[in-house]
Design a protein around this nucleic acid. Structure first.
Lengths: 243, 243
DNA sequence: TAGACCACTTTGGTCATACCAATCTGGACC
DNA sequence: GGTCCAGATTGGTATGACCAAAGTGGTCTA
């Protein structure tokens, strides 16, 4: 808790190397369905020729795609696998493929994220220490101030959920959340105009969660989150529907 | 639904190449905490010398570890990152490190998996078509037969949950489940002696789920699953506690 | 003609070596 | 003591080569 990322003045872009670049292109082609499952991928040598790169770069790219469980590399050839059996790490690329993220997928994400938030809350709240409870209440209080600007509230909401995650102390959920975060969140924040949640709803959310935290009622906090994510989903769906 | 893995007579071992081998060793060393976060990893050349391998093989290994978000490769050196910020793909290795999987981690996994199962049930059951309902009921009925041997029941249980997942039709959860499956399930099935759930509990589980499926009550199915996973967790904890 | 068998080709896995650009390091210099 | 610069180090990439396993196609046999 004490030592956070204190130094991060410059946002380092993911450092696009040739192999990452190639991996991205191939990954997208596979996700786009340009290869049928069990079909053979072009040979490393052919791919190297196509991309004007060395076999080493191509091999590194394929090695990355293999970790996504999109292909199965074997002596004799790499074969495409079902997208449905892939790793969660394909979600990000899947979202960013069209000009606009797929509305269904976004809704599924929010639904799932909501369930994880609920899970976290029900596990964290019952075992709050007094200092943790005070911490959470302070965070909620600080939210009530800038309630009108979603821009300033949203990071506080995330911080609140992160704190809950730390208290719940479940590494599995934590890692899942990491991946979802890595795959979705940033992508979503940029894409569509911020859905403007009505201030009264936000006020109610914070107030409900506050009651739940105070009384140690995890289910109350979870329910408040449920409601919040439901209206969130409605707004996002609406934002994505408008061409 | 129609085309499942019909052909899989020989179980192909994951094909241990040199680069995967190296990646495994380095990954485990990092997970074991042998490097502090932000510390520099030995250079590729040094690692190549250490493993008696070529730089190419080492680079492929590092490329894989990078995808686990365990290291951050940059010109100048690769730096270790926090395990807590890693990808979900580190769970498997994390489990398989000691002679016996960490009891807390296993419990967290089961808790999380339980939550996902509940989520899936609540999303799938309400929108069952009649044929899907019949399918699920048939699966449940087939469970009632070999209720005593956990070995034969367990795969049917998994198939049931998979069917539910297909109906829920949430790609995000599906992919998460894929990863959990890949990371945990196989590892757990081998490790500890099968916890022997009492037949009467299983009978109750199946019966409760049957009622829920028939009446389209997702919450009922979810609750039955909750109970089941709770006793499961108790048994596993007990099995792992016994030296 | 259908099927088994075998040589040839292709493919992935690995190694060695080399060069470049970015980074890092250490010492000279102010 | 701080600044600055040159050399060493490091990752990124390319080329070329060899091996073993898998795929390929043709021949030969029953």
């Amino acid at each position: 808790m004490s030592r956070m990322n204190s130094i991060s003045p410059i946002k380092v872009p993911p450092l696009m190397t040739r192999s990452h670049e190639i991996a991205g292109v191939l990954r997208d082609e596979i996700l786009r369905g340009q290869f049928r499952p069990s079909e053979r991928l072009p040979s490393e040598r052919d791919l190297a020729a196509r991309f004007g790169a060395s076999r080493g770069a191509v091999r590194e790219a394929l090695s990355q795609i293999e970790q996504l469980r999109l292909i199965d590399i074997q002596p004799g050839g790499a074969r495409i696998k079902e997208v449905n059996d892939a790793s969660i790490a394909v979600l990000g690329p899947l979202l960013g493929m069209g000009s606009k993220p797929d509305a269904d997928l976004v809704d599924q994400f929010l639904d799932t994220f909501s369930a994880l938030a609920r899970f976290t809350a029900t596990r964290a709240i019952p075992k709050l220490s007094e200092s943790q409870r005070a911490d959470l209440l302070a965070q909620l209080d600080s939210m009530t101030h800038d309630m009108n600007s979603v821009e300033s509230l949203q990071p506080k909401m995330r911080a609140f959920l992160m704190t809950l995650g730390g208290i719940a102390d479940n590494l599995v959920v934590r890692l899942i959340s990491n991946d979802l975060q890595a795959q979705f969140v940033e992508r979503m924040l940029q894409l569509h105009p911020r859905p403007s949640l009505k201030p009264e709803l936000l006020r109610e959310l914070v107030s409900d969660m506050r009651l739940g935290v105070e009384s140690g009622d995890g289910e109350a906090v979870a329910s408040a989150l449920d409601v919040h994510f439901l209206s969130m989903r409605a707004l996002v769906a609406q934002a994505l529907a408008s061409d």
